[in-house]
């Protein structure tokens, strides 16, 4: 994580457990940041490649067979929160972004 420069910071409180929110990185890069039930955070591209719309942050967070996922609200494709790989179609994946929580603040960086 030290290799990346943190681009964006916001309070963890703005993220509801088991839900996501969109952040905007420099260069109009959209990232969906998710907070799971155990307060881990994950960051994936916000753009659903099937639907070609920036909606991933508005999906439901849960698990598929134990794999933590975020489910696109558009056509319900599930993506592994850790790797960005689409559970329903492993050839497709979302970009993964570095993210961490420090002192109640979420820090998201460019890859």
């Amino acid at each position: 994580m030290t290799a990346t420069t943190t681009s964006v910071v916001f309070p963890l409180a703005r993220l509801q457990p088991n839900r996501g929110a969109a952040v905007l990185l420099p260069g109009e890069i959209q990232v969906a940041v998710f907070r799971t039930h155990d307060d881990q955070v994950f960051a994936l591209s916000n753009i659903d490649p099937f639907a070609r719309a920036a909606v991933m942050s508005r999906g439901i967070v849960g698990d598929r067979g134990g794999v933590p996922v975020a489910v696109s609200p558009m056509h319900k494709n599930a993506f592994d929160l850790r790797t960005g790989v689409c559970v329903d179609d492993p050839d497709v994946s979302l970009e993964v972004y570095p993210v961490r929580v420090d002192a109640g603040m979420v820090m998201v960086g460019a890859p």
């Binding site: 088991n18 799971t36 039930h37 999906g59 439901i60 967070v61 849960g62 698990d63 598929r64 134990g66 933590p68 996922v69 489910v71 319900k76 599930a78």
Partner: peptide, 9 residues
């Protein structure tokens, strides 16, 4: 488990 897009809604 944690739930999903079927059971949660």
């Amino acid at each position: 488990g944690l739930g999903c897009d079927l059971c949660k809604p």
